[in-house]
Design a protein around this nucleic acid. Structure first.
Lengths: 101, 101
DNA sequence: ACATATTATATCATTCCTGATATGTCGTCA
DNA sequence: TGACGACATATCAGGAATGATATAATATGT
């Protein structure tokens, strides 16, 4: 699977896809992409549990609303790094982070 | 604590320091830095358990020996992203990753 | 329908991470 | 001692991630 196609899959529908989306993907990359989606979902869940808007979270993170939107979609332009910092900014502990993974 | 000093602490001795090293650091940043160190330690441990040199791991990661050295020190120039990809390249599962966190 | 709030998408300049390279340090072994 | 292997440290060009901004889409309430 080439990079361009993978990026489209990631940014678009593949969160609703099944295992076939990962066909041909090296296992370490599959693990990495799945991790990002799990963190993305955890971030959105935690933000909503705190009754915060994307904008409010962006302010805490010293980021922008648009980037938070991408974070919650697991967009390829967002790193694990930023997702983790987002969760910490929401007060998540390392233990809770581990549970999300 | 300013950024420059923090970077020096991170890259130099503070892995041997105590809680005082984190004084004045916002909790979300403390969590982030601690996370990086845990991942760094896990990476080194896993690499050694596999009897690999830094150079061998670098090849798997499509990186360089020097970067692997920085990764294992938790150097500020290394992101959580790269550490996680390093662990996955060593065959670590998401579950094992969570345990390391 | 309208206004407002929230989220999604597109584009872009700047920053920072990355891999590469060179070189240094340290230990080991002949 | 010298040669060698493994790891540490410095520097840097290139590229990817970031925050910002603008704007579009979608909700939610009146």
């Amino acid at each position: 699977m080439n990079t361009a196609k993978r990026k489209r899959l990631e940014s678009a529908g593949w969160r609703f896809g099944n295992a076939a989306d990962f066909l041909g993907m090296p296992p370490e990359e599959e693990a990495y992409v799945k991790l990002k989606l799990r963190l993305a979902d955890a971030l959105e869940a935690k933000r909503k549990a705190e009754h915060l808007t994307q904008k409010a979270l962006a302010t805490r993170l010293k980021s922008s609303q648009s980037r938070v939107a991408f974070m919650e979609k697991g967009d390829p332009s967002v790193t694990v790094d930023l997702l983790v910092r987002g969760l910490f900014a929401l007060g998540v502990s390392r233990k809770e982070l581990a549970k999300a993974i």
